[in-house]
Amino acid sequence: MPEAPRLLRFARRLTGEMHAADDLVQETLLRAWRNFRQFQEGSSARAWCYRIMLNTFYGQGRKVRAMPATVPLEDRILVGATSPGIENVEISQALDALPAEHRTVLLLGVVEGFTCREVSEILSVPIGTVMSRLSRARQSLREKLSQSEKVIP
């Protein structure tokens, strides 16, 4: 299970809770094992795992997480695997403030390093939709960052 650490990192971002993230990864890996016959040879196994994870998470009727601003800094660092440092916390906060749709494409396409085509497979949306979502998400993130830069003296 070479993907487990990466899946766990993504799950922590998705759920915002350590235990919930552990449970989500376990469920994802078990589902992947059970449904391995459905995996199409030639496609990306890694993308397939992320797709299962997102389906599991949203299939559980969870609301998309919006990390509360009251979570202490240390917990944020721990949960989000954010590197310490004010700059890093700033961009992490800006990401959390984005709508879920934008946050998800940035996490998959930028942080996890999936191509636009792979993100389109994971989210089951056309590649054109992924590209326009990524453009809007980058634009929103840039705006959030420039707002926070204005606030910080």
Binding site: M1, P5, N88, L95, V110, R138
Partner: peptide, 30 residues
């Protein structure tokens, strides 16, 4: 945009969490 992507990756990809216990638990369940 490229610099912002790099900043995002640097902030969120600091290190991979330890997943050994989790992997063992999944292997046991399988």
């Amino acid at each position: 945009l490229s610099a912002m992507d790099a900043r995002l990756r640097k902030a969120l990809c600091a290190g991979l969490p330890e997943a050994g216990a989790l992997e063992r638990s999944v292997s046991r369940q399988i």
